[in-house]
Simulated scan of single mutants.
Amino acid sequence: TRDFLAGALRTREHVFARIREVFERYRFEPLQASAFERLETLTGKYGDEGDKLIFKILRCGEHEATGEADLALRYDMTVPLTRVVANHGSQLPTPYKRYARGPVWRADRPGKGRFREFAVC
């Protein structure tokens, strides 16, 4: 992961603002989905290799000592979109034209110039 100081952050936010303007010009609606999902929702969607790249969130509370995970950070925006449509489909317009931007996380050993946390649109 990385930190963004003021200059880089301003540039980044400017780029994201331009992207948002284009989406909204074509009447796409914004969507902000949760950064984490139930582990069972994410596993199996990316194949065995993809499952190894999921950052798991260990259970806390009474199950903390088990070392088991029941949540995970999102890997991309596809599964969260599917969950949103399944949970809120009757409230969404048809066709549902949406855009989303946000961080995703992949638990791999990134090569030079790549990161475990990055933004996608």
Rank of each mutant, 00 (worst) to 15 (best):
T1Q: 11
T1C: 06
T1K: 10
T1W: 03
D3V: 14
F4M: 15
A6N: 12
A6I: 14
G7I: 04
A8V: 13
L9F: 11
L9H: 12
R10S: 11
R10H: 14
T11E: 11
T11W: 06
R12I: 09
R12C: 06
R12M: 13
H14T: 14
H14I: 05
H14R: 12
H14Y: 15
V15K: 01
V15N: 02
F16S: 02
F16D: 07
A17F: 09
R18F: 10
I19E: 12
I19D: 07
I19G: 04
I19Q: 10
E24I: 10
E24S: 04
R25W: 08
Y26V: 00
Y26E: 11
R27Q: 13
R27E: 12
L31N: 02
Q32P: 00
A33G: 14
S34V: 00
S34K: 01
A35P: 12
F36K: 02
E37N: 11
R38Y: 15
L39N: 05
T41F: 03
L42C: 08
L42K: 03
T43F: 02
T43I: 15
T43C: 04
T43G: 00
G44P: 05
Y46Q: 01
E49Q: 13
D51N: 13
D51R: 03
K52M: 03
L53E: 15
L53R: 15
I54C: 05
F55P: 03
K56Y: 09
I57E: 06
I57Y: 14
I57N: 07
R59H: 05
C60R: 10
G61S: 09
G61Q: 09
G61Y: 15
E62M: 08
H63D: 13
H63R: 10
E64R: 13
E64I: 10
E64H: 14
T66D: 14
T66H: 04
G67A: 08
G67N: 08
G67E: 09
L71R: 15
L71P: 01
A72H: 11
L73S: 05
L73G: 06
R74G: 07
Y75E: 01
D76V: 02
M77C: 03
M77N: 10
T78S: 15
R83Q: 13
V85L: 07
A86S: 13
A86H: 05
N87T: 08
H88C: 14
H88I: 01
H88T: 06
L92M: 11
L92W: 11
P93D: 01
T94D: 03
T94C: 00
P95T: 10
Y96P: 00
K97L: 12
R98S: 13
A100I: 02
A100H: 15
A100C: 07
R101Y: 11
G102N: 10
P103C: 01
V104A: 13
W105E: 03
W105P: 02
W105Y: 15
W105L: 05
R106V: 04
R106Y: 11
A107K: 12
D108M: 04
R109Q: 11
P110W: 08
R114P: 03
R114A: 10
F115L: 14
F115G: 00
R116H: 10
R116A: 06
V120M: 14
C121P: 12
